[in-house]
Design a protein around this nucleic acid. Structure first.
Length: 846
RNA sequence: GCGGGCGUGGUGGAAUAGGUAGACACGCCAGACUUAAAAUCUGUUGGCCGUAUGGCCGUGGGGGUUCAAGUCCCCCCGCCCGCACCA
């Protein structure tokens, strides 16, 4: 019996597809298009089994839609700018570009054998000058359109390396290389005005019906629309220019419970008080935390009593102390708050720590009570609040706002948590911001005909900091406007900018302009976008904004402002990890170095005992990565593809196990064996068997189609297993089995295209299965005349009866009461209740 | 800390709209084939009690609604993702 040899078969079919150019996408206005896109990878150098899963999902959809007659666009490219290239440059003394393009070549080499239906003619990398030059052109247009501006913002500053650090490079408040405590430093930075679109981005979420609810909720919360009150307290004893303190609150109803006011350490007031060394020291301490919100919120609540007070607007003679506090974000609201400890947990923690009053002003039952360690944040009635007493929270909010407005102390405002998008990066390996700073003309965009502003190649990474800053010939240019000596902007763009429009570039990857509107009109939107849940907020929100900004500047049609029609977020691939201890240091081992048994694990080379760690996301640092190349070498691409699609639902994490891969391989071998057996098999069979097989075939078509359409690939595969079992046991004749096996090949094609081609060819299929139309289900073949109804007695399943599909309810009741188990249970009595759910279940209540 | 999600046999998981919990697969066990092993095929397999008909218990834990709860409601626990300069 011939064994299926993936190593020979897979390259053969890949060559055939290439030669027939079956995956090349071309605009054809007479055909309906379908655009499938997986989030493009960062070229780290190795593909990862997580990539295989991501791209296989996209490939299944692409191949399925293609079989369904759509004109499919399924492109691939590289998210190629970013810090790892610079880190590699520092470590290995290579140029980031050399490193990146080598990685791209390596990864492409690893992806090709997987047989994805990708149109490689559209490939690009975001670090190609042809790509980032178009991005610069759009930057200039967006600057003209008022979508970009400059303002001061804080960055993590490493005082030893004299460089800006990313949040992930700050570890416990220290620089990752220098180990020096980081400082917060203000720099003038470039921003996209995403906040202009806060409300629109929020409203439009409601129409993204094919996005996961959880992603929409996360974005909604991120945008964080709130109705609140912005008003000024009169301040007592403040420094010059600080006779007022402006605060923002979403709980004006709790104003009578206020017991303190607090400002951020970055607030102008806090800075103005820094002549006091104690204030300066406290502020410096707060600023030592790095810039991430997470760090600030996790830190112990701490405050500094400034000795200043503010007057309560409604309670004569009451003054509240003003603190500088480490948990107030300067970026949200006004950077200053009033604290009502009874009804906000952070304020309560703070108040308990500093011995401030805690007065309940909202009560569930209208009665007064003592607040313990948990703030009361539920709805209720206002108490202890003078003219607000007895009101609901909403009425009290409205009342306080109107009174404050009447006294001209402030006003009700709509506030958003969403901040403008800071895109300045003080780094080399990114898209240069195409502007020039001229002493006379100010900020002048580069002339479009001079684009791209290319990154200079002659740079060194032997010292920290941005090489562009010290590159004199690159930096010193003539002002495009007046011709005087001027300086180029040395900040480059956040890599999120690169990934905010690549989907649009794929529709016309060689256009002289950023997009070709006719192509964009035809191919946009992305019909199915697939990627990791970790991108739920930033990448997806930025892309939604950027599409709008592109539309405003004429680079996308109006119809494409919401670029992703459907979104699917897939889970990670996980694996247990292996560790040994050496000299008190943990050493991690790759799964390929390990012999794993049911009891434990040993090192392949030395037989040393190994600790088996929990199942976690595959990561380089824990070395628990499985190399797809090894899997392909051992079993072939189809096995890898089949395995990552089977078992786990795609939105959930999947654990890579050697046993699972082995099982996938066995199944594919079994399919091939069956194919050969059918080919060599008996022509004779009965009509009954033929009908049963045909029914099973149509059942399989229906199930697999629904499975793929619903992104339930694991269920589609389970149905294919069932169909395989049925087909193997079938006594139908050769022609009938061949027909069934052809359908099997068609249904398997999206998952295991190479094997499917081979099966299709041997079973006499016309042409390639990759280009064959999807099989059509005959609904008449799905119908069964009789159904089995379970009988419950008091809610527990005790028996079952077979009845005709459309037997009337009264007849079903009679049959149920005649059932042995029911007669026994009733013991001559009448049932209390008899519930018949047609087609579903019978429940006899005794 | 805040926001979002997930939790079902030994394992991965299935279960339209509240209606048979455990489809399908792995593993285990038993059998067939084989000198033997591998491969393959067949069968069994949630736990406990029972020779058996059968009974009880079971979807992270606790409570509730219902004729009926994995599914709905309340409380709790554990794990994962994000938190704006990682990509």
């Amino acid at each position: 019996m011939s064994r299926y040899n993936a190593r020979v078969t897979e390259p053969k079919w890949q060559k055939a597809w290439d030669e027939a150019e079956v995956f090349k996408a071309e605009r054809d206005d007479s055909r309906e298009k379908y655009y499938v896109l997986e989030m493009f990878p960062y070229p780290s150098g190795r593909i990862h089994i997580g990539h295989v899963r991501n791209y296989t999902m996209g490939d299944v959809v692409a191949r399925f839609k293609s079989a369904r007659g759509f004109n499919v666009l399924h492109p691939m490219g590289w998210d190629a700018f970013g810090m790892p290239a610079e880190n590699a440059a520092m470590e290995n003394n290579t140029h980031p570009g050399t490193w990146t393009y080598k990685n791209i070549a390596d990864m492409k080499e690893q992806m090709k054998p997987l047989g994805f239906s990708l149109d490689w003619t559209r490939e690009f990398a975001t670090c190609d000058p042809e790509y980032y030059g178009k991005q610069q052109a759009m930057f200039i247009d967006m600057l003209d359109a008022g979508l970009i501006y400059r303002k001061n913002a804080v960055v993590n500053w490493d005082p030893v390396d004299m460089t800006v650090l990313a949040n992930e490079q700050v570890i416990d408040g220290k620089g990752w290389r220098s180990n020096a405590p980081v400082e917060r430093k203000e720099l003038t930075q470039w921003f996209f005005k995403i906040s202009d679109y806060s409300d629109e981005l929020l409203e439009a979420l409601d129409h993204l019906s094919e996005w996961p609810e959880k992603v929409r909720t996360m974005q909604k919360n991120w945008i964080g629309k709130s109705q609140g009150l912005q008003f000024s307290f009169d301040m007592n004893g403040g420094p010059d220019g600080f006779d007022k303190l402006e605060v923002y609150t979403t709980r004006p109803d709790t104003l009578f419970g206020a017991s303190f006011a607090a400002v951020s350490a970055d607030h102008p007031l806090a800075k103005a008080l820094e002549s006091d060394p104690k204030v300066a020291a406290f502020n410096a301490e707060c600023r030592r935390m790095g810039t991430s919100a997470e760090e600030m919120e996790k830190a112990d609540k701490r405050g500094f009593d400034t000795g200043l007070t503010v007057s309560h607007p409604f309670i004569e003679g009451v003054e509240l102390p003003v603190y500088i506090a480490n948990f107030i974000l300067m970026d949200y609201g006004t950077g200053a708050i009033f604290g009502c400890p009874a009804h906000d947990q952070r304020d309560l923690d703070f108040a308990r720590k500093y011995g401030l009053d805690v007065k309940a002003v909202v009560s569930a039952d209208g009665e007064n009570y003592e607040v313990g360690t948990v703030a009361f944040t539920d709805p209720g009635t206002i108490i202890n609040s003078d003219f607000l007493n007895g009101m609901s929270i909403d009425d009290a909010k409205a009342d306080v706002i109107s009174r404050i407005e009447a006294r001209e102390m402030g006003k009700g405002v709509t506030n958003y948590r969403l901040r403008d998008w800071g895109i300045s990066r003080q780094r080399y390996w990114g898209c240069p911001i195409p502007v020039i700073h001229c002493d006379t003309c100010g900020i002048v965009p580069e002339k479009k005909e001079n684009l791209p502003v290319k990154l200079p190649d002659d740079v060194s990474f032997d010292r920290p900091g941005n090489p562009l800053d010290r590159h004199e010939t690159w930096r010193n240019v003539d002002c495009p406007k007046c011709g005087a000596a001027a300086k180029r902007e040395t900040d480059t763009m956040d890599t999120f900018v690169d990934s905010s429009w690549y989907y649009a570039r794929f529709t016309s990857p060689n256009a002289e302009t950023p997009t070709d509107l006719a192509e964009a009109e035809y191919w946009m939107n992305v019909d199915q976008y697939i990627g990791g849940i970790e991108h739920a907020i930033l990448h997806l929100l930025y892309s939604r904004f950027f599409a709008r900004a592109m539309e405003k500047t004429g680079h996308l049609p109006k119809s494409a402002i919401e670029p992703f029609n459907a979104l699917f977020t897939q889970g990670m691939v996980t694996h247990e990890f292996y560790a040994t201890e050496k000299n008190n240091r943990t050493v991690y081992h790759n799964p390929s170095e390990v012999i794993r048994t049911a009891e434990g694990a040993t090192l392949r080379t030395t037989g040393e005992e190994i600790t088996v760690g929990p199942i976690i996301k595959m990561s380089k640092s824990k070395k628990n990565v499985v190399d797809p190349e090894d899997i392909i070498d051992q079993y072939g691409a189809d096995t890898a593809r089949w395995f990552v699609m089977s078992d786990s639902p795609p939105e959930r994490d999947v654990e890579w196990t050697a046993a699972g891969a082995e099982a996938a391989w066995k199944h594919l071998q079994r399919i091939w064996r069956m194919t050969v057996e059918i080919d060599e098999g008996d022509a004779n069979g009965t009509a009954d068997d033929a009908l049963a097989l045909a029914k099973a075939t149509h059942r399989a078509i229906d199930d697999v189609t629904k499975g793929i359409e619903g992104f339930a690939f694991n269920k589609a595969i389970a149905k294919l297993y069932e169909f395989t079992n049925t087909l193997q046991k079938s006594k139908a004749g050769k022609a009938d089995k061949q027909a069934a096996m052809q359908v099997m090949a068609q249904l398997m094609q999206p998952m295991t295209p190479h094997l499917a081609e081979e099966v299709w060819a041997l079973m006499g299929g016309q042409g390639m299965v990759t280009t064959a139309p999807w099989p059509v289900v005959d609904p008449a073949m799905l119908v069964d005349d009789t159904i089995t109804l379970p009988i419950q007695i008091n809610g527990k399943r005790r028996s079952e009866i077979k009845v005709a599909k459309d037997l009337p309810k009264s007849e079903v009741e009679k049959l149920a009461l005649a059932d042995d188990a029911v007669i026994r249970a009733l013991d001559g009595n009448a049932p209390k209740k008899l519930i018949v759910v047609p087609g579903r279940i019978i429940n006899v209540v005794i």
